[in-house]
Write a protein that binds this DNA or RNA. Sequence first.
DNA 1: TTGTAAGCGTTATCAA
DNA 2: TTGATAACGCTTACAA
Lengths: 304, 304
Amino acid sequence: MEYAEKVNYSPNPIALSLKENKSRAIGVIVPEIANHFFSQAINGIEDIANKRGYHVVIFQSHESYQREVTNIQHIIARKVDGLLISLSGQTNDVSHLQEIQQKKLPLVLFDRVSDKIEAHKVVADNFDGAFKATEHLILSGRRRIAHITSPSLLSITKERLMGYQVALEKHQIPYDESLVKYCGFEPEEAKKLIFNLINEQKPDAIFTTSDRLALDCFSAVKEQGILIPEELSFIGFTNLKVAHLLAPSLSTIVQPAFEIGQTAAELLLDSIERKQHHVEEFRTIKIPTEMVVRNSSQILLQNS
Amino acid sequence: MEYAEKVNYSPNPIALSLKENKSRAIGVIVPEIANHFFSQAINGIEDIANKRGYHVVIFQSHESYQREVTNIQHIIARKVDGLLISLSGQTNDVSHLQEIQQKKLPLVLFDRVSDKIEAHKVVADNFDGAFKATEHLILSGRRRIAHITSPSLLSITKERLMGYQVALEKHQIPYDESLVKYCGFEPEEAKKLIFNLINEQKPDAIFTTSDRLALDCFSAVKEQGILIPEELSFIGFTNLKVAHLLAPSLSTIVQPAFEIGQTAAELLLDSIERKQHHVEEFRTIKIPTEMVVRNSSQILLQNS
DNA sequence: TTGTAAGCGTTATCAA
DNA sequence: TTGATAACGCTTACAA
């Protein structure tokens, strides 16, 4: 012992891993790391993982189903102790995740989840956030509220659409499908779509679901010379600071990215550490969103 | 072989690591992951690392020297094959990095480097970027150009200040120390500092060096009712898209975050893979910045 | 060609 | 209490 102290001994974690058949590392797959929502979430994951003595190995799917599958194969080969994943915009089939479960690797989905798999899930309360955002616009007198959102496959898309629809219903505004636009991740796609939407549908409000889409809306509106907020009422966003500058009275639905990351990591590590003891029940945890109102009819919904 | 194929065999990377005494993982320490510059850089690192069969383990110093030292200890214990690091805003002493080198662990510093250590370094051409930004403001008729920048310890701060000074010198504008403000990472600090700067020094242009500082400048200027760009000429930034919305004619010095990440990773992996062969010479690679001019005197310098 | 054994650094187990 | 040994999964080297 004193000799160990003397030579500054620390056990070789690789040998330990081999012996104990665990790596004290968790894998994280996100669509894109250079995205405020996901980098915040990773922040939360790292926070918990470090506190509990785990390391975080990060993979990006770049919104591609193919890359997600490849990542999963790497994860399996790498022998991480567990996996946190937020699905790519293309992911429909989840057999790669089922493979993870067959290998008895603890798995937690966060933010972008899937109904097709039974596992722990941690999400924002997207329904509630979208409901509140839409109702806020309605209560400020808007009737033709457009909704520009993420690809239709994603769970977040469906949940938010539901919140939007239920809010309209509650206030007896008929649901108009032509006011809802799904938008992928190609830079040019959003711009075109938004231009057409504004010109053809003449909405009096837009409720978007990400940083990028909100910015594109602002661009389109500015370039078309439509005033904010007099003629159009807004919108969806991530960065409160930037939002505030763009339109000082803009309101926001804040997505709890950091908390989602923390909660997902807690769940995963708990699952890892009592893996052998008993079969556990799968839990879905909803983290509430918060509406920051800035005395106007403008609405932001945070990414992703 | 065919049996291996049949049972879908893949070698256990941990056993392999133990045997070959390498982990095929590289460590990355950044001040903050939820920062556009660093998440882009990590993107570049991941791009190269994955292509060459390595995994990326990420650590955050949260701008704290103490946490950076702790991270280094984890890195050493974790037996990664090499380390990429961008220094925290508090880091002055680099003995923790020297320890890494004594352990013969390949090391590459990127973006925020230090003169006190001999190692591979990959940086943006901050001098040139700052020179061009400042000169651009001067050529558009500005004389009292303020410079709001990062903590004075950082290499990026020094390099950019130098570019700013040399540009002033070239155009026979005396250097006025009271126009230069160093700003830390506390949210409230920037606001106060900028308010005082604008009120007391009455600059006719501000050249800042990060997203955050640029946003805070915009806030301050808006709240004080000073017009953009008539009375004040701008500024430093990261996100071109947002910048464009805030002030459509704003120009930008684009920081090559992705390329810095890629180059640093290439250098590190090369270093790892021919480690035993011969002692190598340390290289410092400067990646050029690009100025995006938008027909105005306004300047952006990208993060970080 | 095929097979066997040693060693990478641990820890747990069992024997002395 | 102390000490030797096996096993984790792999590769390399050498023997059959």
